[in-house]
Amino acid sequence: MNGIKILTVLRKELTAGLRHRAASASMLMFALTALACMSLALGGSPLEPNVLAALLWIVIFFASTVGLDRIFEDEAASGTLTTLKVYADAQSILFGKMIYALISLSALSTFLLPTFIVLFDCPVAEPPVMLLTIVFGLIGLSGAGTLVAALSTAASVKSGLFSILLFPIVLPIFLPAINLTSAAMAGGEISLTMLIPMLLFDAILLVASSILFDYIWN
């Protein structure tokens, strides 16, 4: 693995992504539509923190599937994947694209989270726990999303495959993420050590992605 090559991939992704904002626009539009629908349907009725936390992560999950499944699919459709396979090593591509996915999801969450808090009158008793939970959740989602995007691009039948494969992989991240987000909203007995399982699963996911991606790429 080479940090400069990862940065080279990341710079390319950012440049191309900023010039053609289809993926980020799709994610943003999905998040906006989902938030608007839920907000209008609830009409200001108060919700329990556990329901709010689950809603937040459902929106993040499905918004991410709208954008992340294009990570390799766009390259395959435009014929650049073949060129990449000649010149790039697997690990630089994996981590370059993964960091780009994390940046995209972080940008989405920067918009999504305050909008969610305002629209649902959501209490945040423990902001640091809330933020760290979101960050660790997004790391896991980016790692799994990048790997699954590569897998689904190699498949001959792609429709729906990305979401189907992604969900069971990110479930061990999502369950503690929903619980911690709910606890961060409600306050009470909560400690940063509760984030350790999420952090561990992120680490396992990144290592497993790194090992598996060599087989997919070559």
């Binding site: 080479n2 400069i4 090559k5 080279t8 991939v9 710079r11 390319k12 440049t15 191309a16 010039r19 053609h20 435009s78 014929g79 650049t80 073949t82 060129t83 990449l84 000649v86 010149y87 790039a88 090593d89 630089s92």
Partner: peptide, 27 residues
């Protein structure tokens, strides 16, 4: 290094950006 009809370049990048990108992947 390879050149083939199936190998495409990035349409949304300039020629210089494409060249620097692929060269950068080889350090």
């Amino acid at each position: 290094a390879a050149l083939a009809p199936t190998m495409n370049l990035y349409d949304r990048l300039t020629a210089t950006e494409n060249l620097r990108f692929f060269a950068g992947l080889r350090d």
